[in-house]
């Protein structure tokens, strides 16, 4: 087990390097002098001279990458000029909010997606299957940002069940209940598409597995149908569902950008959009690398879970 985790961690190293290189090259596409681009409105001669010195921006491209990478290793992602604070501090603070949102959405999409897929497959062509298939179709077709707006109109404005936006109430909020009240709508809106995709994949994975010979064996043994579906069939189907969950985690993580805008959620997605509009390049660069790296690491977790489930992987 430990050997497998180590192997996966080592294999992630080149990918992490690749990510930094790609982000660096994209950012190098910015036309004009990098120092002025990074500083934007703050490009006073002193600032330009300082940043050139700090980041080695007058060096050739190749060298600049390694200077940046070296800084990255020491946790120095530079300084955000629009916010006037270290990029890393801002990222960590914002990422925490995104993690709460995306994490709960991910749990929602995994639980409800798999549940819906299993019920759908077990009751194929029955009314439950049809209802689920229809809901899934709507779910994967509705843009999350529009869904979020509709939810605000219905549940916050009309029914007054939930607050319109934000993460905590401004006055007197701050506890976990307050957070939950603010979290429910954005988490559901963000989870909708992913839940639909997971439900679809789970349904077809279950149908595929239910036709296998070992399911017939389980039935021939007299195993109860509930156990055939939830034990024998689902455990095998999970082997195909887990990679889908890994991919959906990426969609949830990046789809959070829209939801954070709609619900004024103080997460990293909103930070990125603001940074792009303010041309705060270092903040964008740092944010993208950080989130992408987290996603790569998350995928290692997915692979490890997969190997725990499927004894054939390790051998």
């Amino acid at each position: 087990m430990a050997a497998y985790i180590l192997k996966r961690l080592i294999s992630a190293i080149p990918v992490l390097f690749g990510i930094t290189l790609i982000v660096f090259l994209i950012m190098a596409m910015i036309p004009g002098d990098p120092a002025t681009a990074i500083l934007g409105a703050y490009a006073t001669p002193e600032n330009v001279a300082k940043i050139n010195r700090d980041l080695g921006l007058d060096a050739p491209l190749f060298q600049r990458y390694f200077i940046w990478l070296g800084n990255l290793f020491t946790g120095d992602l530079g300084r955000s000029y629009s916010l006037n604070r270290p990029v890393l501090h801002e990222i960590i603070e914002r990422f925490h909010a995104t993690l709460v949102l995306a994490g709960s959405s991910f749990v929602l999409c995994a639980v409800f997606g798999i549940l819906a897929g299993v019920v759908s497959a077990a009751r194929q062509y029955g009314w439950a299957d049809k209802a689920i298939t229809f809901t899934v179709l709507i779910g994967i077709s509705i843009p999350s940002f529009f869904l979020g707006m509709v939810m605000i109109l219905v549940f916050a404005v009309r029914l007054r069940w939930f607050p319109v936006s934000g993460m905590y109430a401004i006055y007197g909020g701050g506890d976990i209940l307050d957070l939950l009240r603010h979290l429910i709508m954005p988490a559901l809106a963000l989870a909708a598409v992913a839940t639909g995709v997971v439900a679809r994949m789970s349904r077809s994975a279950m149908l595929e597995v239910l036709r296998q010979d070992y399911i017939r064996t389980a039935r021939a043994k007299g195993v109860k149908e509930r156990k055939v579906i939830l034990g024998h069939a689902l455990s095998s189907a999970m082997v195909n569902i887990i990679p889908v969950l890994g991919i959906q985690a990426g969609f949830v993580l990046s789809g959070a950008v829209y939801i954070e805008m709609v619900f004024q959620w103080p997460g990293i997605g909103r930070m990125l959009v603001d940074a792009i509009l303010k041309r705060d390049i270092l903040l964008v660069q740092g944010g993208v690398v950080f989130v992408a790296a987290c996603y790569v690491l998350f995928n290692i977790v997915v692979d490890v879970v997969q190997s725990l489930l499927d004894p054939r992987i390790k051998s």
């Binding site: 990510i19 790609i22 950012m27 989130v291």
Partner: peptide, 24 residues
């Protein structure tokens, strides 16, 4: 290899990075 690395990014994030570089 390059394709794999590009696919390691959460999808919309990469688009954001490109828009950030090219401008809105």
């Amino acid at each position: 290899r390059l394709v794999d690395m590009l696919m390691a990014f959460p999808y919309i994030l990469l688009a954001l990075a490109i828009v950030a570089a090219l401008g809105p």
